[in-house]
């Protein structure tokens, strides 16, 4: 059986969705409360990393294929940069050209909410990719070690 025990798997299945929702909340309210794109992105990535730890990489990649993660990784960074470029229309790089908002209103901070979402995509997918790359490396070197032992 791949992955960890049934208890871990069941609990992971139960919890992973909530972790993603919590991460999304941290991202969306990043400009009002502590948190933001990076923290939220890490939390979302943690949900997928938890899946990978409990079920093995196949299940995690079926939820978030590697190619999709790569696209999200680059697209998030590009979106961030694109918003910065958009500010150039107002004369300055990263100019908050939608106007400064009011305190404690969700849709009020101009560029900051889209920037947070872009960062969340970038961070979440790249953290997942880093973890999966390390896991794949490690498994390969582990296999090489066993082959050395046998030979």
């Amino acid at each position: 059986m791949k992955g960890m025990t049934l208890i871990v798997k069941t609990i992971t299945d139960f919890v992973a969705g909530f972790i993603v929702i919590f991460g999304a909340y941290i991202v969306l309210y990043g400009h009002l409360t502590p948190g933001g794109g990076f923290a939220g992105g890490v939390i979302v990535a943690c949900a997928f990393i938890l899946l990978m730890l409990a079920h093995g990489s196949d299940v995690a990649f079926s939820k978030l294929p590697e190619k999709v993660a790569h696209v999200m990784d680059s697209a998030g960074a590009l979106a961030f940069l694109g918003i910065g470029w958009f500010g150039m229309t107002m004369g300055f790089f990263f100019m908050n050209s939608f106007g400064r908002g009011e305190m404690f209103k969700l849709f009020s901070s101009g560029m900051i909410l889209p920037l947070n979402i872009a960062v969340a995509f970038k961070v979440g997918s790249s953290l997942f990719l880093v973890f999966s790359a390390l896991a794949i490396f490690r498994r390969r070197s582990f296999r090489a070690m066993i082959e050395d032992e046998l030979a």
Partner: peptide, 13 residues
């Protein structure tokens, strides 16, 4: 750190 760990694994290989 992730770059360092990746390099460690590669060096171990």
């Amino acid at each position: 750190m992730s770059l360092m760990v990746a390099m460690c694994i590669r060096l171990y290989e």
